[in-house]
């Protein structure tokens, strides 16, 4: 990991933690009790997007065709 990446990931961690440290996030008003830990939405968004990309790639095996598919 080079220095640029290190700075980048540190920044991400700070972005993630800062609001909780300053108390902007109200743990009493969580939804369904599943988002009551720090970084729930960050982890959720990350995993959801990777899952969507993998799903799209899997479907592409069956659905992707050349641009002239219908023109024959």
């Amino acid at each position: 990991m080079n220095d640029r990446n290190k700075i980048f990931y540190t920044l991400l961690l700070l972005i993630n933690l800062a609001p909780y440290l300053y108390g902007f996030y109200d743990f009493d008003k969580v939804n369904f009790g599943i988002d009551n830990f720090i970084g729930f939405y960050a982890i959720f968004g990350f995993i959801a997007c990777l899952a969507l990309i993998i799903l799209a790639k899997l479907l592409a095996i069956f659905l992707k065709k050349g641009e002239t598919y219908y023109d024959e």
């Binding site: 991400l12 972005i15 902007f24 996030y25 109200d26 939405y41 960050a42 968004g45 990350f46 997007c49």
Partner: peptide
Amino acid sequence: NHVISQLHLLIFSGLA
């Protein structure tokens, strides 16, 4: 809660 959850969701989607 709204703002933070939405920002985190979006920033980490961008990372993905």
